[in-house]
């Protein structure tokens, strides 16, 4: 129990951010027309590729001969980068069609 309290007090700012963002996230996203559900899901999916930041930090912190970490981190970056690049590109492609049609 003490352990949990320690963890909370150490990360108090992060926990504040966490709770506020949950409210902000639901507020920002509600009221979306059905037309935009697929692009929105795809765009949000691309943003979830932000996990790549973790993989970058992890590789940078490793020493140059720590191959298990380097290899796991490499695949982490590779997979997350596909998610990021592909996700934004696909979303853009979907939204381009909406634009063309608006004329």
């Amino acid at each position: 129990m003490e352990l949990l309290l320690n963890f909370i007090s150490e990360n108090l700012t992060m926990l504040y951010i966490l709770v506020f963002i949950i409210f902000l996230g639901t507020e920002v996203i509600s009221n979306v027309p059905t037309v935009l559900h697929t692009p929105l899901m795809s765009g949000a999916n691309a943003i979830s590729g932000v996990v790549i930041i973790g993989a970058i930090i992890l590789i940078r912190q490793a020493s140059a001969d720590d191959y298990p970490i380097l290899i796991l981190g490499f695949f982490g970056i590779l997979l997350a980068m596909i998610n990021v690049a592909g996700g934004f590109a696909v979303t853009n492609r979907m939204l381009e069609m909406f634009k063309k049609k608006k004329k």
């Binding site: 949950i22 902000l24 996230g25 920002v28 996203i29 979306v32 899901m41 949000a44 999916n45 943003i47």
Partner: peptide
């Protein structure tokens, strides 16, 4: 968390 919230709402 933004994605977590948006995914949940959707």
């Amino acid at each position: 968390i933004l994605v977590g919230a948006s995914g949940t709402i959707l």
